[in-house]
């Protein structure tokens, strides 16, 4: 659905994007993760056709923005970081305007407007001015405009920024529902958000992709603290399905810490935590503390950010 190849974007002396390549298929949610200034918004603006790249290309369903912008734009819905809302319009007028821009058939426009209002539960507030809406509702209307015309590709830039936990959950559920028929690329700098929603995470730092991996294959690290080291326990932990490695260290207070790295398919950590606990109890090891340390994604993200800070400090 989306094919980005060797994309470069230069702003004067600054190379905002450098040799960026990625693909997103229908039925896939790809999270774009990176610190501020990593180039996420620039990449999304290029994919959406708002700006053109200095080199490389973006193809949506095989269509290039530079060659056939209108056809490429017809296949995508874009929610920028700041929803593009005219605050003097009502929700209904605004969405009717977007429908008029995106839906060619005049007869289908009314149906589409009702579908969108209905789908986003905006019917009851359709007459309210956009400027009077809460951040959550504004984001919802912004998301609704991106879905007008049911484009197969959705580009969402920081869609959960400023939302409360209930709204974030609502957004996640909506995304899972949409996943079936759409290819979705969304950006965030909230790690847990990306981990919870994405099938794949593309990490961007200083305009370069530093990692592109399946979230299901990413490791999580747990720390299990016991009174003493035991070889059998270590072996038992290694045998737990999903465990990649087990490292042991003696802590300052004399207690022993096992750092267990494991893959958690489908993001369900419940069974692996149970297995780790039983592996310990079978070997008569009293678990004094058992807590998640961090995910591999988190580790990569912080490594990237700290590298960046270090280099900036050296300069």
């Amino acid at each position: 659905m989306l094919e980005v190849d060797k994309l470069v974007k230069e702003f004067g002396q600054i190379r905002a994007l450098d040799d960026v390549s990625l693909q997103v298929s229908r039925g896939e949610i790809v999270g774009l993760l990176g610190p501020n200034g990593a180039g996420k918004t620039t990449l999304m603006n290029i994919i959406a056709g708002y700006i053109f790249p200095s080199a490389g290309y973006v193809k949506i369903d095989g269509l290039d923005h530079v060659v056939d912008s209108k056809s490429a734009c017809a296949r995508l819905g874009y929610l920028p970081e700041r929803p593009p809302l005219y605050d003097d319009m009502t929700i209904e007028d605004y969405l009717a305007f977007v429908v008029a821009l995106k839906v060619p058939d005049r007869r289908s426009q009314k149906v589409e407007l009702h579908r969108i209002l209905d789908e986003f539960q905006l019917c009851n507030v359709r007459g309210r001015l956009l400027r009077n809406l809460s951040k959550g509702y504004q984001q919802r209307v912004g998301f609704a405009q991106a879905l007008v015309g049911s484009p197969p590709l959705l580009i969402l830039d920081e869609p959960t920024a400023g939302l409360d936990p209930r709204q974030i959950r609502e957004f996640r559920n909506r995304l899972f529902k949409l996943k079936e028929n759409h290819a979705i690329l969304f950006s965030s700098h909230i790690l847990t958000e990306v981990e919870a929603v994405s099938d794949r995470v593309v990490m961007l730092n200083r305009g370069r992709i530093i990692s592109d991996s399946d979230t299901a294959l990413m490791g999580f690290k747990y720390r299990v603290i016991t009174e003493r080291e035991d070889k059998l326990t270590r072996q038992a932990l290694r045998r737990v399905p999903g465990v990649i490695s087990v490292e042991g260290t003696i802590k300052e207070d004399g207690l022993f810490a096992y750092d267990v790295t494991a893959n958690i398919p489908d993001g369900d950590s419940h069974s692996i935590r149970k297995d780790i606990f039983f592996a310990m109890s079978k070997n008569n090891q009293a678990v004094l503390e058992f807590r998640p340390l961090y995910s591999e994604l988190e580790e990569r993200f912080f490594n990237a950010v700290s590298d960046q800070h270090r280099e900036e400090a050296n300069r």
Binding site: A48, A74, P80, Q145
Partner: peptide, 8 residues
């Protein structure tokens, strides 16, 4: 961004 990413 709405206008210039719409199919018009």
């Amino acid at each position: 961004k709405l206008l210039f990413t719409a199919p018009i």
